[in-house]
Nucleic acid binder design. Structure first.
Ligand SMILES: [Mn+2]
Ligand SMILES: [Mn+2]
Ligand SMILES: [Zn+2]
Ligand SMILES: [Zn+2]
Lengths: 162, 162
DNA sequence: TATAAAAACGATAACCATTCTCATTTTAAA
DNA sequence: TTTAAAATGAGAATGGTTATCGTTTTTATA
C-alpha cells in the first residue's frame, strides 16, 4: 500500500512536477478512499483533516494533474459534480460502473467487459480506441433483495388476513 | 418526419402536459439537428430563430421534461455542459458515442453492442440493467486518414531530397 | 363563448462548481 | 546558501443551471 504512494510520487518526479506535502496528502486521501467516488469538495474536506492549511484551488489543481498522469479518472454521473476515481495500478482504461436508480449506490466492475466490443468498433467504425466510459443504470443487488423481501412479507400478511 | 413531432406532442398530452408553441418549437429544433449534440444554449439560439420571444429558462424546462419522457438523453462529454441527444424512436436505451481526441468530433453508433455484456452484468453482478452509457475515446476515421496522408507525403518529399 | 384554476412562461436573480488572478511561499538544483 | 521556477492559498470571477415571481396561456367546464 505504501508503495503505491511512492510510485505515484516517482511518477510526478519523472515528469518534473514538484513533490509537495499537499500533493502527497491528496494522493493519500484518494488511496484511503479508493472504493468511493469523491468529488473535489469531498477530497478537500478529507485532505483538510491531515493538512488543514490546504486550499480548495490546490485540490482542484492536484486532481487535474493526477488526471493528466492517468492516476485518476475524472468521471461524471450526471449530478452536477465531477468525481475522481483512482485507477487500478497499471490499468490501461477506466473500469465500469453500476449506478442504482433506487438507492444511488455506485458499484464497480473491475474486469474489462469491452474487449470484443472494441474490436467491432475498431473494425466496423475505423475508430482507434484509446479509452472508454461504460456505466449501467438500473437496480443494484441490494435493492432487488429488498423488493423481494417486501413481496414475501406482503404475501405472508395476506395469508393471515384471509 | 412530421409524424415524429405529432407523436411526441401526443406523448406530452397523454401525460397531461400542456402543448405550448415553445415546446413544439423546441422539439422541432431537436429533430432538425438530430445528428448534433446540442447544449441547452445551442438549442436556445436555434429555437429563437423560429420563436424569438422564448426564454432560456423555458428551454431548460422543456429539455428537462423531454428527458423525463425519455424523448432525449441528457449526456455529458466532460466539457462543462450537458448535451441533449434525441433517442431513436422506440429505442429502449441510449446509443453509443465515439469521441475523437484529435478533432473533438462526436460520432454515433446506433446498433446495440452491449446485449452480451448486459447479460453478464445481470448474471454475475445481480444488477438489473435499465439503461447504459457507453462512450469510446480515441481517434476517428477522418483523423486517422489525415495522419496516413501526411506520412505518405513526408515519404514522397524524402524521396525527392535524396 | 365566457370563466377560472392550473400550468407554463420570460426576465432575471441566485446558486454553486470550477477556474482564474496575484501576491507569497516552497521546492529543487547548483 | 542562493535563486529561479513552480506551487500555493485566498478569494474574485466565470458560466452553466436552477429558483423566484409576476404575467400570460392553456384547457376544461359552464
Ligand atoms: Mn470507480
Ligand atoms: Mn448521440
Ligand atoms: Zn440500490
Ligand atoms: Zn477526429
Amino acid at each position: 500500500m505504501e508503495n503505491r504512494v511512492e510510485r505515484i510520487k516517482k511518477q510526478l518526479h519523472e515528469q518534473s512536477y514538484k513533490l509537495t506535502p499537499q500533493r502527497e496528502a491528496t494522493v493519500q486521501v484518494l488511496l484511503e478512499n479508493e472504493e468511493d467516488h469523491l468529488s473535489a469538495e469531498d477530497v478537500y474536506l478529507l485532505v483538510k483533516e491531515k493538512a488543514p492549511e490546504i486550499g480548495l484551488a490546490t485540490v482542484y489543481r492536484t486532481l487535474e494533474l493526477l488526471n493528466e498522469l492517468e492516476v485518476v479518472d475524472k468521471i461524471n454521473f450526471g449530478d452536477g459534480v465531477s468525481r475522481y476515481d483512482l485507477r487500478k495500478e497499471g490499468a490501461s482504461h477506466s473500469h465500469h460502473h453500476l449506478v442504482c436508480i433506487e438507492c444511488g449506490a455506485v458499484d464497480e466492475i473491475q474486469e474489462d467487459l469491452l474487449a470484443e466490443v472494441e474490436k467491432i468498433v475498431e473494425k466496423d467504425y475505423q475508430f482507434k480506441v484509446k479509452d472508454h466510459r461504460l456505466t449501467f443504470h438500473g437496480v443494484c443487488h441490494r435493492c432487488q433483495a429488498k423488493v423481494k423481501k417486501n413481496e414475501e412479507s406482503a404475501e405472508a400478511a395476506s395469508l393471515h388476513t384471509n
